[in-house]
């Protein structure tokens, strides 16, 4: 039996879900716990590779310095109330903070 060293605990899943702002039910937690551990176990295959001196490929292209001029273009002509689900006057209405 292979040791599953990278298991993610239910507590960890709960705190990660909070970090990602996704509420999960008890049932989902059970399901995710099983599935995510299977997936993470599969991911652990990459541990085999020695990548010590290998640079990461954050960008596959060699492009650099893509810039634009500091010139104003028109902003959105739509009123915010046509876009946001809840508004108050010209403000976007968000829930309370505290």
């Amino acid at each position: 039996m292979v040791e599953r060293k990278k298991a993610i605990s239910k507590e960890q899943i709960e705190s990660i879900a909070w970090l990602a702002r996704i509420e999960i039910s008890k049932k989902e937690l059970e399901l995710f716990s099983r599935q995510l551990n299977d997936i993470l176990f599969y991911f652990s295959k990459i541990d085999e590779v020695n990548t010590k001196s290998i640079p990461p490929s954050y960008h596959v292209l060699d492009l650099v310095n893509v810039l634009r001029k500091d010139e104003v273009k028109p902003s959105l002509s739509e009123d915010i109330s046509q876009i946001a689900p809840q508004t108050k006057g010209k403000f976007v209405k968000a829930p309370r903070m505290a």
Partner: peptide, 14 residues
Amino acid sequence: EYYLKAQKIRTLIK
């Protein structure tokens, strides 16, 4: 362990 390593493997695959 994950993101950085995967991006390095990407270099190897390239």
